[in-house]
Amino acid sequence: MKITVVGLGVIGGSFVKALKGKGYEVYGIDTNQQTLDMAKEEGCIIEGYLDGKDIIPETDLTIICLYPSLVLDFIKNNQFKPGSIVTDAVGIKSYFLREALSIIPDDVEYISIHPMAGREKKGYQYASKQVFENANFIIVYHDDNKKSTIDFVQEFSKQLGFRSVKIMSPEAHDEIISFTSQLPHCLAVSLMNSDDQKYETGKYIGDSFRDLTRIANINEDLWDELFMNNKQYLLASIERFEEQLDILKNAIRDNDDETLKSAFRKSTKRREHL
């Protein structure tokens, strides 16, 4: 099988690194020639291309790892092999999946995926196959997907090291991702920016602050797109969080030990179950 990964950043780069030695013909597309050269030198791709006009018509599986706004442009500007599979790995689905399906040829199957893995920094140099190992993987289906294609993608993900695979609709995906991915990024940014910088904060932090703010080192262009194009679900998640934060704030203000301890017990029980 001939596989082409489009966009060799952290996720795309991790795909080609995880595919190394798996028996596939792997190619890469990126706008940065140096990135392509690096991936080829490491033996992760057979050849690299600055665009898809030569390799995409020959590709059996195309994995598009671009910003959401660029996925549709790539689909519009390339000719895919009849009978091939095209997928994207971006973090939100609903807002562009319908349009993607309207422009993809009838003889090409489009199925969306979301590897729940990544790093706070961007670029091929931070990619690693280890980010996929034992991570969660989501397949986002639509009515025209064949069961055989869903089964193939599920098995393919396990070859790359993913542990848990969930299959869901684009709406369900975007709702849960607003809570498990986007809300934590909101919290990390807010926590980092709430520092009044009265002290040299870095000299007083422990693991809790370090862990909570790791993802505050954020790719502003990507996450702006993700937040704005999933605002309905994200705002609902933020509001639920605000309600819980208010419970703690009010309990502290009112010297309400029982409410505070009850919240602690609830979170402890839920974390242990998780």
Rank of each mutant, 00 (worst) to 15 (best):
G206L: 10
Q130T: 12
K266P: 00
K2Q: 09
I205A: 02
D195H: 11
G13Q: 05
D88V: 12
Y124A: 00
G43C: 06
L245F: 03
I103N: 03
K261R: 08
G9D: 03
I103T: 01
L260T: 14
G91E: 07
Q182H: 10
M168G: 02
P115Y: 06
D106Y: 04
Q34C: 08
K53W: 10
Q130A: 14
I56M: 04
Q34H: 10
Q182L: 12
I113F: 03
V71S: 05
K121D: 00
G7W: 00
V5S: 03
A117R: 00
S164L: 09
C44I: 08
E272N: 15
E258Q: 01
E42F: 12
G43M: 06
V5C: 06
K53Y: 09
V90L: 14
R214W: 09
A263C: 05
D37S: 14
P82Y: 03
I56Y: 01
A100P: 09
P184A: 04
G28H: 04
D246E: 07
N250H: 05
E120L: 02
Y204R: 07
I247M: 09
C44N: 15
D256G: 06
K249R: 10
M168T: 02
G83I: 00
H173L: 05
T259Q: 03
K129Y: 13
Y124D: 02
A89L: 14
K121L: 00
L97Q: 14
A188V: 08
R240A: 15
D256E: 00
A18H: 00
L70P: 00
T268P: 01
G118D: 02
G28N: 08
N32W: 10
I92E: 06
D73P: 09
I103Y: 00
T180W: 02
E200P: 10
R240D: 12
D221N: 11
T62W: 07
I150R: 05
T213V: 13
Q197V: 08
F132K: 08
S194V: 07
F162R: 01
I11A: 07
V71G: 06
D224E: 11
T4Y: 04
G52R: 01
D254V: 05
N145K: 11
K53E: 13
K121M: 03
